[in-house]
């Protein structure tokens, strides 16, 4: 077993160019995977909290009576999807509008009547903020007596949904195909190494070497190549963090909001080991000896 490591190391040094090439290929693959993961992670984190601020406005009939409003609020509060309900009388709405637009108060000049309707603001529970549930809820709300119109950012919700699902799908496809690509690189490398040592292996066999004696060094070599690729990609992602992100966040504070999942990246060498051994195992499994 220890001799398998010696043979593997000897081969690593002897075939340094082939090995270096595949280590770099694996490292680039893992680096792209990491960056994809990093992007998906951040988009996911950034959009996760958006629905929390999501609210719906129910506009009420003109000159609606107090009892009708209370009844509507009561119905809404009973709904499981609802987090909070707030009645906004039209005077209050106008006052809010005036404070937000106080620098452009000329807008309100010559306004002798409040043009705003009474409204109810409904906040939904986070897990109820999906495109379908919101649409269903809006339909139900329309049926409440006194409700004239329901307004919510339908476009926003569907876009957000699209973005999250789309990014995750693309990320997954990218990770899966690059992962397969890396396995293939290890597979090819080990196969090349095997054929280059064909003569030597034939001699080992004639001296009485078992399959295990012959194969183990290739598994070890696949593991070493994969692990090295993983370590190089880890160094690459650290470089990306320190050189790109930290620099940028000095001049552009928005980059400070970017999350860097360290613990996720620390497994890269092990991912490399796994992919390397898998590739090597496929390679030697398909060989006659």
């Amino acid at each position: 077993m220890t001799y398998a490591f010696i043979l593997a190391f000897q081969s690593l040094i002897r075939e340094k160019w082939i090995n270096l090439l595949s280590v770099l290929t694996i490292a680039s693959g893992l680096l792209i995977i990491s960056l994809a993961l990093f992007t998906v992670y951040n988009i996911d984190a950034a959009t996760k909290n958006l629905p929390e601020r999501f609210s719906m406005i129910l506009y009420l009939d003109n000159d609606i009576q107090k009892e009708k409003v209370d009844a509507a609020v009561g119905i809404l509060k009973k709904n499981h999807a609802v987090l909070s309900v707030r009645y906004i009388p039209k005077d209050e709405a106008l006052k809010e509008l005036k404070t937000t637009l106080k620098n452009s108060s000329y807008v309100f000049e010559g306004l002798d009547e409040n043009p705003l309707p009474d409204a109810i603001e409904v906040k939904l529970k986070k897990d109820s903020v999906g495109q379908e549930t919101v649409r269903k809820f809006a339909g139900e709300a329309m049926k409440i007596p006194g409700v004239k119109e329901v307004d919510y950012a339908e476009k926003f919700l569907s876009t957000l949904n699209y973005l999250r699902v789309g990014m995750k799908t693309i990320g997954l496809i990218l990770i899966a195909s690059l992962g397969a690509g890396i396995i293939f690189v290890c597979y090819s490398t080990v196969k090349i190494l095997f054929y280059r040592r064909n003569e030597e292996i034939e001699t080992f066999k004639l001296l009485g070497a078992t399959k295990a004696f012959i194969r183990t060094p290739f598994l070890v070599e696949g593991a070493l190549i994969g692990t090295s690729g993983g370590i190089v990609s880890l160094l690459g992602i650290f470089a990306f963090y320190y050189i790109v992100l930290l620099r940028l966040s000095v001049s552009m504070p928005i980059f400070k909001a970017i999350l860097f999942p360290w613990d996720l990246f620390l497994v890269l060498p092990f991912v490399g080991t796994f992919l390397g051994v898998t590739g090597a195992a496929i390679a030697i499994g398909r060989l006659k000896y």
Binding site: E200, T203, L207, G208, T210
Partner: peptide, 29 residues
């Protein structure tokens, strides 16, 4: 493999391992 270990072969074409020294060649057996 196990049966072959009972046979020592002097090959006509030697089959020496050229990337290993004399000691390692003999040690391989």
């Amino acid at each position: 493999p196990f049966l072959r270990r009972n046979i020592g072969i002097v090959f006509q074409d030697f089959r020496l391992l050229h990337n290993k020294n004399v000691f390692e060649n003999v040690a391989m057996a």
